[in-house]
Structure formats: structure tokens, C-alpha cells
Design a protein around this nucleic acid. Sequence first.
DNA 1: ATCATCCGAGAGAGCGCTCTCACGAGTCGC
DNA 2: GCGACTCGTGAGAGCGCTCTCTCGGATGAT
Lengths: 339, 339
Amino acid sequence: MNETPAGRPTLETVARAAGASRATVSRVVNGSTTVRPDVAESIRQAIADLGYVPNPAARSLVTQRTDSIALILPESATRVFSDDAFFPGVIRGVGEALEKADKQLVLLLASTQSSHDRILRYVHGRTVDGVVLASMHGADTLPEELRAAGVPVVTSGRPLGEATVPYIDVEHASGVKAAMDHLIGLGRRRIATISGPQDMVAGRERLAGYLAGLEALPGAVPLVEEGDFMRQSGIDAMERLLRRDPGIDAVFAASDLMADGALRTLRRLGRRVPADVAVIGFDDVEAARFTDPPLTTVHQPIHEIGTRLAEQILRLVAGEEEVEASVVLPTRLVVRESA
Amino acid sequence: MNETPAGRPTLETVARAAGASRATVSRVVNGSTTVRPDVAESIRQAIADLGYVPNPAARSLVTQRTDSIALILPESATRVFSDDAFFPGVIRGVGEALEKADKQLVLLLASTQSSHDRILRYVHGRTVDGVVLASMHGADTLPEELRAAGVPVVTSGRPLGEATVPYIDVEHASGVKAAMDHLIGLGRRRIATISGPQDMVAGRERLAGYLAGLEALPGAVPLVEEGDFMRQSGIDAMERLLRRDPGIDAVFAASDLMADGALRTLRRLGRRVPADVAVIGFDDVEAARFTDPPLTTVHQPIHEIGTRLAEQILRLVAGEEEVEASVVLPTRLVVRESA
DNA sequence: ATCATCCGAGAGAGCGCTCTCACGAGTCGC
DNA sequence: GCGACTCGTGAGAGCGCTCTCTCGGATGAT
């Protein structure tokens, strides 16, 4: 008398079908080697026949693991999400690495400030084993709160102030320095910059790189206008820059998008690039190859940032002790035609 | 003698602290109204004191719900993920709407074809209550397989062939028709198109719109070069088009990125836009406002596509019967300077 | 005062899984 | 040939929650 298994098959169903115990089936499912080959084989057969798939909720309940990792994009990050290619690139990197490790990616887009509590609640519920945080603003208390909650965290970008959680970042300053050296080597002497927001580490460090680079030019005065990494702010900042000093012969923009904006303003105001004004960006997003002229820029390994974030959080989740407090990836200047 | 609660507080812990039973605490947590106000209050107090957060795994185990929705981006979609602004925009829309409903967004990026099985396994495991699928290619068997697995599914974009699952799409053809009419109204007579891939509905329908629009021009012959929606393909297709017919006075590109590529080729070959050649794109991504000249394009409500996808899947998951088999959102022509 | 009614709250089963522990059978040493 | 091991397997507890069922007590009708 075959009992028709009502819904999805469970371990029990498989066990009965294979004439083994639940424990042994579990062993096979989880790849234990202590099961007699022929028994294992018949269990595998039963699993295939019945189309058995383990119930992750039941498993999580006992293992206290969920095999999923949250990627949190705070409001400040979602703002640039659909324009900038940075976060999509990072997400891809994270997703890819997690897929290899057979972990799930839970995306937490904090669209409003009120999401903050929701995120905390969510993480406290231990629905995820760890958190990758795209922390952007210095004032962000989330990393610390998460750490306090006892959840493994790794952030993208060094936090402002003291770093209390491991992070992945890139060599902002040295990359910018290389750009500045390139500009100076080209004979440029009036080098301005369109900086990023100064409440983000990326904004600050790229500005620091600009200032450091300028020191190679005795007597040169810094010429800074701040943007928000997006295109429109580059357009506007370039206008201000030119108004302040029409004799600018080079500009370093802290993002490719702003560099593109600057290119646009320069063209509109009749400046030739790079003949009159050389332009260098930062990021090396896909679009940088298609600006007019193609953008010389500081390349940062966006995809690798993602894979490294995933790698580190996986190690933390696995309980490894020797996880670096920080990983700083190299940047390099990609010379195209704008400088 | 206070027992120090070892790890996270459970329902039991709260129950003891509040002097109630597990069942009653559960009632309060889940907002049942049949609890005496003072009892409910003391339970709420205990919950706050202990920092109790329900364990979702335990809850899922009994409710058979997970309160999370998967967003699957097949390999073909991840390819354009970091360049095109379409998917990031959709993700934002979906994420936002799901957040409002207090559901989680699980992102499944299928980076390789082998991910197919993994996705199926995952969905079979019922780790998610429903699936939003960015189905792109006609050959994609995933929608059908998911439906067969008994999981609620809604796809972004009408599938090629018979639609077996509900979908959200936009009025491709009529939007393109409006673009064509605009071009013709401008007096253009040699109108070419850079089409999208013909194994995608979006590609096909936009081409159909072009062909339909051309009929208003007696004797006009279609002039089509195919691209893949990305920038480089627009650059290349435009070259081919010009080689085939140097007298082209307008071109409709099936994506903004390809339109931008076309703009680039036209500029390089000394054509003025829109004086010599008018250009219209499709999508109205952020970058369209910043091309040179600013791109006239067919706007599609990217963000709304996302929110609608979320809305529909939530209704399906909730077991509603009267869910539309399709929702087709309007498009409209946004006239800027390129045409 | 008696009984039916109703409402708030507790007891307890059970969701599907993992994992410890115990057990029986075979192997080995002396 | 007997105790000491080893090794594969099964029994059973228990993860934290929901939900049904039951029950005690208060209420209202008669």
C-alpha cells in the first residue's frame, strides 16, 4: 500500500523510500563519508526519484546558519544607484563570489532613513549570517551598531573616523597622485579639482591625493570645487572653476561621471580637451571609454571590490580569526585621450 | 534566583519574564486582538526589555512562508547590468515596494548557465515565496519551469511566444511609433534604425514600431542594423548604416546607450545632430539628458516597472485570484535636442 | 440559583531538520 | 576465546515558533 506523499518530500519520506533512517539520509545529503557506499547510493536514488530538496528553514533552525549574506545599501548609496555604475558593479562582484560559495545574497536597499531600524531588526533576527555594508557617509552609525549586535560585518570603503569593522577599500590617494604626476608631466601648471563630498572617505582621500600631487608644483594654489560624484555636479563645478580661474589647464575630477560633466562644460565653453584643458577622472566605469574624448582616468577594480567583500565576509562568518582588518586594492592610471 | 538567559531571548524567555504563556506572547507579537490590554502591555514591555526578535526560520518552518521574494537576473541580464541603467532602476523599484510590504529581496544573479539548476533547486527549496524574473531571451525556459514548480512568478517583459506567467511590460511599439511620427513631422525621409537583439521581445517590438512608423512614408525602405542594446554596438551599427546609405537623415536607436553610440559615430564622421541627422533613443535613462546633444528619447517608466513587478508578485503570493495576466505601462516621447 | 455562552489564556503537538548518543556487528590483540 | 576498539546506523531530543484544542471563569438569560 503506497502512501501518497502529500506535499513536498521530507527527510522522513526519503528515509522510508530508501529503507534507511532519517539520520542516515541527512548524512548523505550533507556529504558525510561514513555511510556505506551502497546505502548512500540507494538514498541518492530515492532523493532523485522523489525530487527531495532540503527545507532551509528547518535546517537553519537547528544549525543557526542561514547561508545568506545581506548587502546593505544605505539611502546615500541608493541615490546614486541607478546612475553610477559603481554599485551595480560591486553587487555583481559580491553576487558572483557568493554564488560560488553557495550563499544567498539578500539585498537591503535602505530607501529612507526609517529603514535604519528595519535593517537592525532584520539583522537582529539573524536572517543573515553576515552583512556587507556599503557605508558611505562618515556619520553612519550602522557599522558600529551591527558590530554591537554581534553580526559579522565588512564595509565597502574605509569608514570615516576609527574603523571598528574590517573594510575593503582602494588606494585613492596614490591613484590620484599618479594622475597628478601625469598632468604635471604633461606640463600642466594650473590644475584644479572637482572633489567628491567631504563627508565620505572616498571624497576626502581623493582630495588629499590632489593636494599631495600639487606639492610637486612649487607655488601652485589648490583650486577646489565640490561635487556629489554625479554628472550634473561635475557640469556645475566646472563652470564655477572656470569662473574662478579661466586659465585652468587641467582638472582632476573625483569621479568619471563628474569628469564627463566637466568635459561637457568645457566643450560648451569652447575649451578643447586635452589641448586647452586636460581632464582626468576616477573610477574607470564603462562609460569612461565613451566620453568625448575618451577619458583618462584612475582605474579602480570595482568588480574585485565586490568579490573581496564577499570573500572577507565569508571568512568572518566561517569564524576565521586571521581576517585582515583592511584590504586596500591598488588603483592605476588609465591613459586615454582626455589627458 | 535569576537565570541568565544564555543567547538570544526566545518566546519562552519572554513568556517567563512577563508571566504569560508562549502562546499569548506569540499572539501579542503577531498582533492578535484577543489579549487583555494589560497583559499585552506587560508582554510588550518584556519584549522591549529583553530585545526579543522572532526567529524567522522557526516561524517559516511552521507558517510555510518566508516573506522574501527572489529577483532573478539571468546571465543575459547581468551582462548589461553594470552598464545599462535599466536593471538597477528596476531593482530599486522592486526593492522599494517590497520594503513597504516588509518583504525581503533576494537577488539571484545567474552569472553562468550552470546557475540555472541552482536557481531551480533554490526555488524548489521554497526559500522564497515568489519570484520576479527578468526574463530576457525568448529561449528562456525558466519562467515555465518555475511555474511548473508551483511558485508564483511574474516576469519583466513579455516573454517571446506564449506568455504562461503574468508579466509587466511597456508599450514598445506605440512609443516607437510616436518617435517615428516625430521624425517624419520634422521632415525626415531617410529614417534608419539600430534595432535591439531579435531574440528579445523588447528588441522585436521596437523594430516592429519602426517598421509600422515607416509605413507613413510611402515608398520608404527599412534600413536596419542590429545591436545588443549596449553602447559599442550603437557605434558600430551607425557606421554600417552610414556605409549602406550616407544620405540617412534620421535614426531611431532601440536603446539610449546605442543612441549615444550613434551620436558618437555621427560626430566623428562630421554629421551634425540634429541638423544633418536626427537621433532618437529609447529608455530615457539618466544619461540621456547628458548626451551631446541631449537625447530625444522614448521614455519608459523604469522605476514603476519595478514597483509594479513587486506589487503583482505580492498579490500572487497572497493568493489573490484576480491578478492581471499582463500590465502594459505607457511610454512617451521626450523631446530634447537630438531630434 | 442554574445553565448555556463566550472570551481570554494555556497546554501541547508538530513543522523538518541536525546531531549526540547508544548500540550491534565486525576486527584485532593477547 | 574474550575484552577492547572501530565503524556504520538508528533512536530521539530539541531548535523556536504557530495554531488548534481545551479549559476556567465571567457574563447573561431564565
